[in-house]
Structure formats: C-alpha cells, structure tokens
Design a protein around this nucleic acid. Structure first.
Length: 434
RNA sequence: UCCUCAGUAGCUCAACGGUAGAGCAUUCGGCUGUUAACCGAAGGGUUGUAGGUUCGAAUCCUACCUGAGGAGCCA
C-alpha cells in the first residue's frame, strides 16, 4: 500500500493508497459518513459506506472525534462535489489516537476570539487559514533566500547575543551572561553585516531580532524575523534597486506557488499582480507636503506615523519608496546627503493597501571622522564601537544595505490584519505562551 | 507608559435593575451525498476578582486583575 500525501492525490487516481492524518471534520448520515482528513499538505474528503465496510471500521469512523489521528486506505477518484475536487472511497481505517469526547478538541470550526485562539496557538496552527498563512511565510522566506543566493550574496549570520545595543536608542532585552556580564538580544544584524560585507562583498543575514519596546499594536512583535542584505561599494541607489528586485521576486514566487493558500485567505490576487517595477519614488520632503495636503498634521522633521504611511500608500498600487529623511530622526550610522547634509541617505519601503513600512535601509557612513562625531552626538559608548570604527580604518568604502521584516511582508501578501498570525508562535507584549 | 473598549456555559454571543438564555461543541436518538450538514432530546453557570448602592445587581458605582484596539517607537 503506497502512502501518499493529499497534495499528491491527482497522481494516484484509481490506485489503492493510504493517507495518514487527522480528522478535520465529519458529516454523517445514517449509513454513510464523510470524514474529512487533513495531513498537512491538504484536506481529503473520504466516503465511508456502511454496507461496504466491516462494521467495526464504519463505527470507528462514524464516531471519530475532531483531530483524532487516523490512517485511511482506499482508492481516490475525481469528485466535483468534494472540496478540493478529489475523494477517497474508504476501504479500511486505523485510528492511531482517538481524542476523548469528554475533553474534545477545543478549537472548533466555529468562530473564536483572539484571546482564546492565542492561548491555543499550538492547536490553532492546524486550522485552514493559519495553515495557509504559514505556508505563505515559508514561500516568502525561501524566495528571499533564493533571491540573494542567486545574486551573488553570501549568507553570513550575525550574533544574537550582542555586547551593546545596535542603535543605542531603542530598548533592548538584557540577558545574564555567566558571572558579572550582561549581554543584549540583537535588535538588528546590521553593524556586523558591515563587517562581513567588507569580507565578502555582498552578504545577507537572516534571523530573529528582538525589540523590548512596549509597543502594543497589530504591527509589532517583540521577537520577529528579519532579512538584512549589505553591499560593499554600494550606494542608496543600489539599495533601492535591490529592494525593488527582491520584492518583485518574492511576490512573483508567492503568486506562482501559493495560489491555493491565497484563495483560502480570500486574498485579492490582482492587487499582488500589480506589484511590478519600477516602484514610485518620493522624497521625504515631498511626502510631507503630500501628507499635509491630505490633512495630516505632520511637520517637517517628524517621522511618518502609522496613519501617515497609510495615507501615502493609498496613492499607489505598488510599494512606494520614501527617501532622504532628516538625519535627526534616523540612526547614527546613516550617510548624509552630499548636497543637503541635514538629510540622511536612507529609504523606507511602504507596502500598499495601508500595510506600512516593510523595509528600512540606506547608505552607511564610511568616513572615520564623521562616524566618530556621530557616536559622540548620540552619546554612544565609544569602546563598544571600536571594532565598528576599524571598518573605517581598514579599507573603508561606500556601502549600503537594508532590512526587511518577514512578518510584515507576509501580513501584506496574505492581506490579513495582524502580524501575530504570520509567525507560528508570536511573542508580544504580555504574551509569551505557548 | 498613556487613551479607548471588553470580560456571562468548553467556544461565540444575548439578556441592560425583577426567575440567567440561544447557536456551536459534548452525550443519546434519526437520516445512503453531507459541504462550518440537518432534525429531535439531555447534561452543562459562584455572570473576571473584591467591595459598595438597592427590597432586589450579570445589569448601577469604586478599585483591582486579564485581554483587545490605538498612540509613541520601529521591521
């Protein structure tokens, strides 16, 4: 008997096969019942007819409880009435573990509230929608890696324990490191990326980042995943080009390989099909003017708020790049604009449909004296940055890079309204379980 | 940290000062093509916690706890 996954059903029509999975749903009508089995690759509707089965097998199936693990054997045929288009005529079944009806599976197919679902996240991820979102996440991550791997970037992972906050300003999680030493969970691999870029030319790091800000919004997690490329001999324009190419590549992959998941999510595919280069570019100056015309009370020199990002992205059907922000609202390491030094050569990419910032990046300072001056202005402990300053002493070159938040990207592509559903086990303010 | 909202059956909600209810889930019964199947019946409650007002509180008031949304900050 050949064991197949449900996704392979079309290649095994008419042949005896077995499917190992869990009971997703069951409908029963006296002498016939329809167990729907999920196996992680899809959902298969089965048909069990009393007259054609041993009594024990039929009874076991008819009384099966939700999410009991079960192996079913039989032949598969095309069936229009079945969701998914295929159906198995069950000839035999083996219950691996039966969920006790006295303590039934808690996540029913009916509606639930967010608190309940998040408390049961370890089970919630079995449901169709969550399953689809996490499949899209997998596709996004794979596409991102494929893009960099096939464009001359070397994966150089950066440390998670760091001796100091990368950017000084934001709050970091402090960890006891053996006796008498404190380390911090990384907020970004960027500073280390600059070192590996000088070693390998083009690099990227892909890993978790931690932010201890008490942010309480649908766009924040305390632990999230970020891909950060960095390029030596590169400028702001290179960052913009690579970011655009990468986004188009990722969106294309999701459209090519995850149509079924997007359908489960009821995502408007045309909105994603519109994501093609070139992306619109707008300067921070113009962004502020546009926003003021639209009624925002943003002033020049202030950062774009969440509503500002939404207002701005409403103007476009694809991601928009906003560049040259005031240096004062950007991190210390941004290279100033040569014509207007009060501006930083940084760029943010805002996703369409109000999904906000998914990418932030820019060109880094390569001049030693200027970097030393910035460290002082930001009152950063110079000792901790000596190694970083070395990068400007030994073969410094113009270099640039960016970071993309994986969960924000997945949230946008899936068209869902909360970041927490795009990671298997979200870590948020006040929620660290399960 | 601040602002707003919400906690009633396992779940989703109703009852808004006068006997705590429905759908789903569970159990029992019915049904040979169900699509979050349907039909009949049963069990299931210290209304988040602690005080207060009242003849009477799920309902009004106060504090606290828990959660959600938003602000600031960011990916």
């Amino acid at each position: 008997m050949t064991r197949i996954t449900i996704s392979q059903a079309a290649q095994h029509l008419g042949k005896p096969v077995e499917i190992a999975g869990w009971l997703y749903n069951l409908r029963s009508s006296g002498k016939i019942c329809f167990p729907q089995i999920r196996d992680g690759s899809g959902i298969m509707q089965c048909v069990a007819v009393k007259a054609q089965l041993p009594e024990a097998v039929f009874d076991a199936l008819k009384k099966l409880t939700q999410e009991s693990s079960v192996i079913v054997r039989g032949k598969i045929r095309a069936e229009q009435r079945a969701p998914g288009g295929f159906e198995m005529d069950v000839e035999d079944a083996e219950v691996v573990q039966r969920v006790d009806e006295e303590k039934p599976y808690p996540v029913s197919l009916k509606e639930h509230g967010p608190d309940f679902l998040l408390d049961h996240r370890h089970l919630w991820i079995r449901s169709r929608k969550q399953h689809a979102v996490l499949h899209v996440r997998h596709e996004v991550i794979k596409a991102v890696r494929d893009y960099f791997d096939s464009n001359g970037f070397t994966l150089c992972d950066t440390p998670i324990f760091t001796p100091a906050a990368c950017e000084g300003t934001t709050t970091v999680f402090e960890v006891d490191y053996f006796e008498d030493e404190k380390v911090y969970l990384t907020q970004s691999g960027q500073l280390y990326n600059e070192a590996t870029a000088a070693a390998f030319g083009k690099v990227y790091t892909f890993g978790p980042a931690f932010r201890a800000e008490k942010s309480k919004t649908r766009r924040h997690l305390t632990e999230f995943w970020m891909v950060e490329p960095e390029m030596a001999y590169a400028t702001l324009d290179d960052v913009k080009r690579v970011a655009e190419e990468m986004i188009c590549f990722v969106v294309g992959r999701v459209l090519a390989n995850r149509r079924a998941e997007l359908a489960v999510l009821e995502r408007e595919v045309t909105k994603l099909e519109a994501v093609k280069g070139p992306f619109p570019h707008i300067s921070y100056d113009d962004a502020v003017k546009t926003l003021q015309k639209k009624g925002s009370n943003i002033q020049w020199g202030g950062d774009l708020g969440g509503t500002d990002e939404t207002l701005l992205s409403e103007n476009y059907d694809r991601p928009v790049m906003v560049d040259r922000y005031p240096a004062q609202i950007k991190a210390f390491y941004f290279q100033p604009d040569p014509v207007r030094p009060e501006l930083a050569l940084g760029v943010d990419v805002l996703a369409p449909e109000g999904y906000g910032e998914i990418i932030g990046g820019g060109q880094r300072i390569h001049d030693l004296a200027l970097l030393e001056q910035r460290l002082e202005e930001h009152k950063l402990p110079r000792e901790a940055f000596e190694w970083y300053l070395d990068l400007r002493r030994f073969g410094s070159v113009p270099h640039a890079g960016f970071g993309m938040g994986i969960e924000r990207c997945v949230t946008w592509l899936c068209g869902i309204d909360h970041l927490r559903e795009t990671i298997p086990f979200p870590r948020m303010l006040y929620r660290t379980r399960p």
